[in-house]
């Protein structure tokens, strides 16, 4: 084990996979000399050269489309997005092309493609650099979607993503890059998709949280514990595939669930999770599932306003008490 920052864990896995598989290469904006705005490709160009760590023009659709063609013909590109907000510039290539080609070609095409980058609040980047994009990629069939909340998960899930033969949307969080923990040194350390992590055991309420919200949910759980409510905190880790079983097992015990994400609450992934819980586990529920997510407005610049839009520890705390009727 080595203690690593989330951003370094990502960098190291990319390097290890590039060493072991010559078909893996990286393309994106400002990833070479700079090593990415957040350091996730730092020094990779020094080791692997400009062919395999390829600075692109600011042409997101162009390099995503180029990555698709490379993936169709035997390569395993990792497409680096400085801000995942920029996926909208490349949406045709991502959702009409990458997501659909295998299906439309009757399974006779394979697209081992990773699209990775960061999203979310934390740097005062305002509405087009602070949002959460996962719902677009869970809605259109074809992508797998991973959202690591810790350094070790980032490493294990990214290795699975790079070795997967499907397009994977790998969603990091800018506010987690500096977080660190022990990460296994095994160059084959991988976390399978579709396996949720139970971050905290509890018997009274289940809190399902993604990405940055996992930490906030754990904080809320500590406060709840002082009030005699023991919350179980579950991090799905991948949204597609989604580990419903682990959530249902928890809810069978607690009878109550809160789903919290940073993305907009309206039509968000939380709605899907809540619905799946109700479809499969209504008999376990003692209270309606509560969803928390960003308010239905563009992410504002002001820190005060940003905090007012995205669920905080207190919001999660309140919601958990609500479903416990306390």
């Amino acid at each position: 084990m080595s203690r690593k920052k989330y951003s370094v864990a990502i960098r190291d896995v990319i390097a290890e996979e590039m060493r072991s598989d010559p078909s893996v290469f990286v393309m994106g904006e400002d990833i070479g000399a700079l090593g990415g705005v957040f350091g996730c490709t730092r020094d990779l160009q020094k080791e692997f050269g400009k062919n395999r760590v390829r600075d692109t023009p600011i042409a997101e659709a162009g390099y995503v489309g180029t990555g698709i063609g490379a993936a169709l013909t035997g390569m395993r590109p990792i497409l680096d997005f400085m801000y995942l907000d920029f996926v909208y510039v490349a949406m045709d290539q991502l959702l009409n092309q990458a997501a659909k080609l295998r299906y439309m070609y009757g399974g006779r095409a394979t697209l081992p493609l990773v699209v990775r980058g960061q999203q979310g609040i934390g740097r005062g980047n305002a509405g087009t650099h602070s949002q959460s994009v996962e719902a677009f990629f869970t809605h259109i069939p074809g992508f797998k979607v991973a959202m690591p909340s810790t350094a070790s998960d980032a490493a294990g899930l990214l290795r699975t993503a790079i070795r997967d033969n499907n397009p994977v949307m790998f969603i990091e969080h800018k506010a987690l890059y500096a977080s660190s923990e022990e990460v296994p040194d095994d160059p084959n350390f991988a976390i399978p998709f579709g396996k949720a992590a139970v971050r905290r055991q509890g018997k009274d309420v289940t809190i399902i949280a993604t990405s940055l919200m996992v930490g906030r949910a754990l904080e809320a759980a500590e406060a709840l514990s002082k009030e005699g409510i023991e919350a179980e905190v579950i991090d799905p880790r991948t949204l597609l595939p989604l580990d419903l079983d682990t959530m249902l097992k928890s809810i069978e015990k607690t009878g109550r669930a809160v789903v919290v994400h940073e993305a907009h609450k309206n039509n968000g992934v939380g709605a899907e999770i809540a619905s799946q819980i109700m479809e499969a586990g209504f008999k376990f529920l003692d209270a309606p599932v509560v969803r928390l997510g960003a308010k239905a407005c563009t992410l504002p610049f002001s820190l005060v306003l940003e905090n007012a839009v995205v669920p905080g520890v207190d919001d999660i705390h309140e919601a958990a008490k609500q479903v416990c009727y306390k």
């Binding site: 180029t66 990555g67 063609g69 169709l72």
Partner: peptide
């Protein structure tokens, strides 16, 4: 762009 990618490959 897929042709570009095949050529890059």
């Amino acid at each position: 762009p897929h042709a570009n990618g095949a050529a890059l490959s």
